[in-house]
Write a protein that binds this DNA or RNA. Sequence first.
RNA 1: GGCCCUAUCGUCUAACGGUUAGGACAGGUCCCUUUCACGGACCAAAUCGGGGUUCGAUUCCCCGUAGGGUCACCA
Length: 543
Amino acid sequence: MSISELETKYPSRNLPMGAEVVRVAPSPTGFVHVGLLYMAVICKYIAKQSGGVFILRIEDTDREREVPGAKEEIVRQLNAFGLGYDEGEYIDEAGELKEKGDYGPYLQSERTDIYNSYLQHLIENDLAYKCYMTIEELGAMRNEQMENKVRPGVYGKFAKYHNANNPELVSSELYNEYQHLLKSDASYVVRFKSKGNMHSKFQMNDVIMGDVQVPENDEDFIVMKSDGHPSYHFAHVIDDKLMGTTLVIRGNEWFASLGKHIALWKAFGWSIPQYGHVAPINKQDGGTVRKLSKRKDNEADVKYFIEAGYQPEAVVAYLLRLANPSFDEYFTKQIHDKLNLINSLNGYYFNLSELARGGRGPLIDMPKLNNLSSEIIAQMPAQQLYKKYTQWLETHDVEFFNILSSNPEYTQKVLNIERTGEKIRKDIYNFEMIKGQIYYMFDTLVKPNRDSGYFPKEAKNMLCNLLVERDILSVNENGENMLELEVWVNTMKQICTDLGYEKFGDFMKALRIILTGEERTPNLYFLFNVLGSEKVKDRIMAE
RNA sequence: GGCCCUAUCGUCUAACGGUUAGGACAGGUCCCUUUCACGGACCAAAUCGGGGUUCGAUUCCCCGUAGGGUCACCA
């Protein structure tokens, strides 16, 4: 397809003023990194609140590093975290990878024809050339450059074939050799024919980093690899042009090659989109700080959060607040106003300028994530919690899943303990930790041998009788105790005295242990109500 | 090493050149209390170092120092 045909096929978008077209552009080279989620959160908010477009483009031009299934995993996880996009690959009901949007293909490996058209254009206009330097040749040259302490790379006089098709500028040997190579089937790459001077710098405004100095590019960098695939530098410019990207948000590891990209935009005579370079999430490891790495950090892989049973929204909220510190204030206000936290995530107005201005990126802070997460879980209605939790259990703890789902009403009551009214528990931040807090409510799981010996046999009998006589165990049809909490406590204190025990604390502790096997549990008042009188008596009398 | 970017409590960060340098999470103490939790009150905790400019510098400039990025037929 010719360039003019391409430009007709991908017309400029008809969008309202200020609408931003943004994209995330991951490579399918492995697991899904939190960094991608972080970028997606940023892009999603920018696109949504500007009335723009959010695109997923998969950059699979490195066929050696591509891992099978990674594309699908990207699509799955992005959607699992609620970071759906307007255009790009998706998985349909049949499990097939499809794509949506008019500016595709959104898989770079399917855009080869497009790249070739522009490549042709570059070569025809003397803006790029075929280079036949071999890997060995390049390696040797590099070593020599290092030995002589000159900057390694293919630039200036080191760009062997830069002018090789111009007999007036090179020796006749080289010219002839080049003509011969062009006709041969020797392997080659296409290099950009740079005219830049690295000693001259220009200023640019990065939407995140602010005003920055960037040196002109003087390297004849590769635009097409010998396997026929484009390099990142080339592909990103072509794609972002054709897809109408207005703001290129990407990791700041790309900042150093910005000069190359600008040179390319200029070579085509295209106007340059805005750029925003985001500092990546780091991790403190002893005395050093480094990027989150797969091998060392479980939390680098977004699957970790799903495995541990974090709410996707909590992770998104955390990333949002990492990017926008003032999210804290917003979130706190939502809590104060008792608004639905998950719903209100959408109402936050994202501010690009709040992102750290380059340098080292923020450190991942799990306690902060846990804090946000526990607020979100605390607010979840029992029914919803039950549904999500059991769904999670189904794939992570089938045994417990079976126990819970055999008695949904009871389970919901258990899950709802201290989750209504004034004092709501906020100590659960992921599903993984729930079991440890409720297992003893289920007869098949509660530890045997709970008797601490505090209550002798006779005392147990009297205790049970008194609990019944004084309505401690009477519950109405709503599962509420007939006694007010305060009355209940006073009655318990009375029973404690009547049985001849002195310290109420010790009495309650013994009772707690005999009932649950744990020293720390929610208020016994609520536990009694949920367990019911028969179970309470059985557990007291057991053993 | 060259080039680029950055530097405020443990962490994320506020602060027109004038503030007792603020908040949040984490931590500590106390209160509430049948334990846990929840809640409340309080505490501790920072401007990397050195020079300038200025009446005055966290803020502007320079030099150090430290951290990050990058220098591939990887993205």
